[in-house]
């Protein structure tokens, strides 16, 4: 196990290095070559025919000189846990991430938990009562959820909440450690909504897996032994049905965290998604590089976590 984890960690290191090189090359070499760079955009606002100004801005933002050296400088900073500074406001990215990452992680994790809480019971019930009314109801519900974008649902809830109940989500964000009650009030709804759409897909996977497992011989044997229905379902069927579900859940987490931008905008939350979107539109290179790397770390970690969880669910799997 230890050897396997070490191997995976080394591989993760290489993966992250490769991601950083690809992102850096795209941002700093390819995009400026076929489109523009940050300085072109700023210089465009001032007036296009001012090469002196463009050169001055490049120096000011640390974008002049050898691009390869700039990459190694950024990488060196990364090893010292210094992600650099935003080009436009000079704020340390590490500090900004420190404020924002917990918000996005919390949104993503609560969203995922709510997705699991919705989908697993619904999937199990739908499988156990296959082709009967609970199955039809939950499948219809899942299809409906799958067809409704979460942000649209959020806007509808806010709009009709204000129309019918004179309600709108709180505007003053508070961190959990500042004011736990206010924090829960502002985070609960977006987190729940974030989990709603993926829960539809998850429910369908849980149902399918449960149906497959329920047809296995060992389940028939357990039932023939006279075990109670809930023991068969929860102890024997569900545990085995969950292996692919865990894979999907694990891989959904980074996507959920990265996909929070629109919810952050609607609910005025200081998360990573908004930070990445505004940085991309400004061509704020250090921020884009760093946020991409953070998302890559999340994906690699989630993958590793999923792989390491298999032996816990299925004793036949060993590393």
């Amino acid at each position: 196990m230890g050897r396997y984890v070490t191997q995976r960690l080394i591989l993760a290191g290489f993966t992250l290095l490769l991601v950083s090189i690809i992102v850096f090359t795209l941002l700093r070499v390819i995009v400026p070559l076929v489109y523009v760079d940050a300085v072109d955009i700023i210089a465009g606002e001032y007036g296009h025919s001012d090469p002196e100004l463009a050169a001055q801005l490049r120096d000011e933002y640390g974008l002049s000189g050898n691009v390869v050296l700039q990459y190694f400088e950024w990488l060196g900073g990364l090893l010292r846990l210094d992600l650099g500074e935003s080009l436009f406001n000079g704020r340390a990215i590490t500090t900004e991430m420190g404020d924002r990452l917990p918000v996005s992680l919390e949104l993503g994790i609560i969203g995922l938990l709510s997705a699991i809480l919705f989908s697993v019971p619904m999937g199990v019930v739908a499988a156990v009562w296959q082709d009967r009314w609970p199955d039809y109801v939950f499948r219809t519900f899942a299809i409906m959820l799958n067809s409704i974008p979460g942000f649209w649902l959020a806007i509808m809830i806010i709009t009709f909440g204000s129309l019918w109940f004179n309600w709108a989500p709180p505007l003053n964000f508070k961190y959990l450690w500042e004011d736990p009650v206010a924090h829960i009030k502002i985070m609960a709804l977006p987190a729940l909504l974030i989990g709603l759409t993926p829960s539809a897909g998850l429910m369908r996977i849980v149902r399918t897996q449960m149906l497959e497992v329920m047809r296995q011989d060992y389940i028939r044997t357990a039932q023939a032994k006279g075990l109670a229905g809930h023991v068969v379902i929860f102890r024997h069927a569900m545990r085995n049905a969950l292996i692919p579900v865990v894979t999907v859940i694990g891989l959904s987490l980074p996507g959920l965290i990265a996909g929070t931008a629109i919810f952050e905008s609607i609910f005025t939350l200081p998360g990573m998604g908004q930070y990445l979107v505004s940085s991309v539109s400004n061509f704020d290179y250090p921020v884009v590089q760093s946020t991409n790397l953070i998302f890559a770390v999340l994906i690699v970690t989630a993958n590793l976590g999923v792989d390491l969880s298999y032996p816990l669910l299925d004793p036949r799997i060993r590393y």
Binding site: I155, I158, T159, G161, S162, L163, N166, W167, A168, P170, L171, N172, S265, I266, F267, T268
Partner: peptide, 21 residues
């Protein structure tokens, strides 16, 4: 003054209706 950044128009409309702006 508290000045939240509400980029989404429908959200600002809802906040006004709810008397939060």
């Amino acid at each position: 003054f508290d000045i939240p950044i509400i980029a989404e128009y429908s959200a600002s409309l809802a906040q006004f209706r709810a008397k939060k702006v």
